[in-house]
Design a protein around this nucleic acid. Structure first.
Lengths: 337, 337
DNA sequence: CTGAAAGCGCTTACAG
DNA sequence: CTGAAAGCGCTTACAG
């Protein structure tokens, strides 16, 4: 990276002069036009870009904390808005001034992110959406800043979780109350951590509550509207179908509902649906039919992450804390108690 | 803000020692336990936080550009994901390494953001969702970095716009083709810039195409599912209703569709709907009914913003450029040609 | 085990 | 009109 010194050398002037040109105090400082030309020329040749860190240090401008939010920008991207909103609300509430950097990383490739290992980039980081591999990576490194894991477990780091077992149990329990003896599942192919746990918990909750789930009725698809569409089509080809369907995300449920509406499967008369609600509750409240969801309190969880960071940076906490949030059952037409 | 010097003074040691304690090279450097205690104590008393800029400068770590995305985190927040995805795709394509900072600002209060006026924070900024007031503010300041306006017009700044007139015209034209002579509108109460322009353009396009829009059928609401619900309810109380409805956002259309389904207004038989699609196309593709949208190419627009920044920072462009993107009509059941 | 000094890349007050 | 020098807050190689 060329510095102001390189520009000065190439243009044959002092670094003070380069700085003056750079800061466009041209008139005020009466820089000679030809000097200006020489400097601009050198800047272009070298592709010079000022060093922000040096400027910042020099200006003694507020030393604001920078908090990085590591998030995978795949299908889980739409979830990100809630996280940002939660963080925002908390910083406002605390009247805490900080920069939020969104660091997009690829699933399984958190290890490619250098930020976590640098001492001079972020004051703290919130990491969401980690895969098994990413978690393993995290367990083996020594990050240079406090880290809060979003909806993942770890002894090493701060964690803010949803009680996934409880979320799945709430869904199974409602089916049991409604007298269902059999249920189907639409879940994802690739085992992402939280979804995997929820699906497993749902199955074991059903076992406990005497609800049978045959393997053939565990349909795996991609976590998107389209995935829900495909799964629902597959479901409709099966014989002797259960009348209760658990969808491991609202995306899946909305895609599935589209097909059921189209094919004349009436909800809830022919089939009752409960989904895990990751998106804003509006999304499933105003769909046709409105879908009953176990709604993950993602905004609150994000706010909690921010709150923990605030306290860490104020030197109020040192040992990792682990918070668990309860999810809420929102009753809509697709399955009412 | 206390510095390492303050910590050194208070704890009675040199700044080198404080630095060693801070960097936990305790074993390696064999710091005396009591020295460690003294330093940690002073750090806690002072609430010391290391200055990232100084660390960064000292470490000569890569001088990565930081690009700020100014976005209002109100109802338009859900739109943000597309923007981030677009930016991400472009940085990947260009293999360009930079940090993305999301700076949330409040509607009408862009002037409260200090970042735009600081020379040492961001290398460039993308600003979206500005109100009239925010635009006026921008026209009157001298920002310290290149700025790209997202979907707004200005001679002063770089701009990447959707052709709002064209988007509205496409919707009106389809109604005309279908033989509609009258239409209704659901739009927003608060006049946000882009929506305001689209609604106006739609009205004038209708005039041109001989489609009548009575004032009573311009229903204003809040831009959300709930807003669409309320607007649709109001619409259904009116007599002698048109059979064509233009919704200025997909939120409004989805909320409205919910009510029409519930109240037995059949779409498209009783009422044809076209909406402006701000969200991901999935959202309206798999709703019941699927909604015809004029889809704004927000991802592409965001990618374009990033591309412009890339070229500015490479010193390839100096004069503001203005790009205009076309939106695309996606035909679904709610209104087919 | 601890401290004095150099230097990261800038900007600005001052001298010429 | 231009340049030499000080200093922003850190870390690290070196000396003791």
């Amino acid at each position: 990276m060329p510095t102001i010194k390189d520009v000065a050398t190439l243009s044959g002037v002092s670094i003070s002069t380069v700085s003056i040109v750079l800061n466009s105090k041209l008139e005020e400082r009466k820089v000679a036009p030809q000097t200006y030309e020489k400097v601009m020329n050198a800047i272009n040749i070298l592709g010079y870009q000022p060093n922000m860190a040096a400027r910042r240090l020099r200006s003694s401008e507020s030393n604001k904390p920078t908090i990085s939010l590591y998030w995978p920008l795949d299908y889980r991207a739409s979830f990100l808005v809630n996280i940002l909103l939660g963080i925002r609300e908390e910083t406002k509430r605390l009247n805490y001034d900080c920069d939020i950097v969104v660091s997009a990383y690829e699933n399984d490739k958190l290890s490619a992110e250098s930020g976590l290992l640098s001492k001079n980039k972020f004051s703290a980081a919130i990491i969401g959406g980690t895969s098994y591999k990413d978690m393993e990576y995290l367990e083996n490194i020594k990050p240079q800043m406090p880290i809060i894991l979003f909806n993942r477990n770890s002894d090493k780091y701060f964690t803010v979780c949803n009680d996934n077992d409880d979320a799945a149990y709430k869904a199974a329990k409602l089916f049991a109350v409604k007298g269902h003896k059999r249920a189907a599942i639409i879940t994802v192919e690739t085992p992402f951590l939280a979804m995997n746990i929820r699906t497993k918990s749902f199955i074991s909750a059903c076992r406990e509550l005497d609800i049978e789930i045959e393997d053939i009725f565990i349909i795996k698809s991609e976590n998107s509207y389209e995935g829900g569409v495909l799964a629902a089509k597959k479901f409709l080809t099966l014989e002797n179908r259960p009348h209760a369907l658990f969808c491991d995300s609202d995306f899946l449920a909305l895609g599935a509902a589209h097909i059921f509406n189209k094919e004349g499967t009436h909800i809830p008369e022919d089939l009752e649906i409960i989904a895990i609600g990751m998106l804003s509750p509006d999304t499933t409240e105003y769909s046709t039919p409105p879908i009953t969801v176990v709604s993950l309190p993602s905004k609150k969880m994000a706010a909690d992450c921010m709150n923990i960071i605030y306290n860490i940076l104020k030197n109020n906490i040192t040992e990792p804390v682990h918070k668990v949030h309860e999810s809420k059952l929102l009753f809509r037409d697709s399955c009412r108690p």
